[in-house]
């Protein structure tokens, strides 16, 4: 047991070293500039090597049940120093942030985008009740709890939210580290994109904001401050937005869209 854990530690060190040595890779597609950070390589490598058909020999020991359980149980604690770091990013800019405080609250309404844009697409490609679970939010713990309480996780709604949870966990960080800077090329201000990064998922926020920093390094302080302030706000009022805005809006839209479908 202990031996497997030592393998695990050395494996983590090796992945970190590899990811950091690859460094930041930037390439352009057309007029879009895409930067891949070490964090993307880190998750890609540790996910890929965990594929079941590769789990032989030493990899089997590294990805033992105990080690994987350890990683998922304590991931949140591994993340805590990052959250502590954000305090030092927000503090020096607190005055500036409070000055535009209402903008932070205003953009929270943007979290309804999951319903406004996601639901019509889901209905269009033929999903029905699963769509309720899959578009209520970005499928983090909050939505999981809400859906399981209201519909149970065995229902179609439940399957929808679990699927989104799995997809978000696996690919969320990679998605945002590519998507966030693309919007920069569409002319969005980096402050606005930083604010939008606080969506309620710590790792997705970090991926989005870190890639923005890589693109606009001179704004590092502002980006990290705005993203983490917005994230903190989302963790306070996110539940209210979901229960009192997203869920009712979703019900109304669902009825309209499904009715339109039958004609």
């Amino acid at each position: 047991m202990v031996k497997n854990f030592i393998y695990f530690l050395f494996f983590v060190l090796a992945v970190i070293a590899t990811a950091e040595l690859i460094g930041i890779q930037t390439f352009t597609i057309g007029s879009m500039m895409i930067s891949m950070l070490p964090l993307v390589f880190a998750i890609a490598i540790s996910m890929f090597l965990g594929l079941s058909f590769l789990r032989k020999g030493i990899l089997k020991k590294i990805y033992s049940k105990k080690n994987v359980d350890f990683a998922s149980k304590y991931l949140i604690f591994i993340m805590l120093p990052l959250m502590a770091r954000y305090g030092s990013d927000v503090a020096p800019q607190i005055r500036e942030i409070l000055q535009v405080g209402w903008v932070f609250i205003f953009q929270e309404i943007g979290n309804l985008g999951t319903v406004l844009i996601g639901l019509p697409v889901a209905i269009l490609i033929g999903l029905r009740r699963e769509a309720i679970g899959a578009t209520l939010g970005i499928g983090r713990e909050g939505e999981l709890a809400y859906i399981s309480e209201k519909y149970t996780l065995e229902s179609p709604e439940g399957r929808g939210v679990i699927s989104l949870y799995v997809i978000g966990t696996l690919f969320g960080t990679m998605f945002f580290s590519i998507f966030a800077p693309i919007l920069l090329d569409f002319g969005f201000r980096v402050e606005a994109l930083a604010m939008a990064s606080g969506m309620g998922s710590g790792s997705m926020m970090s991926a989005a904001s870190a890639t923005l920093v890589a693109r606009v390094p001179e704004m590092e302080n502002t980006i990290l401050a705005y993203a983490s302030a917005s994230q903190l706000l989302t963790s306070f009022i996110g539940t209210f937005t979901m229960v009192f805005l997203a869920a009712p809006l979703q019900q109304v839209m669902y009825k309209l869209l499904v009715r339109g479908d039958k004609k």
């Binding site: 983590v12 992945v15 964090l39 998750i43 540790s46 790792s203 970090s206």
Partner: peptide, 9 residues
């Protein structure tokens, strides 16, 4: 961020 995403993977 790198160690976190390694463990997350």
């Amino acid at each position: 961020t790198t160690p976190i995403l390694t463990v997350a993977g």
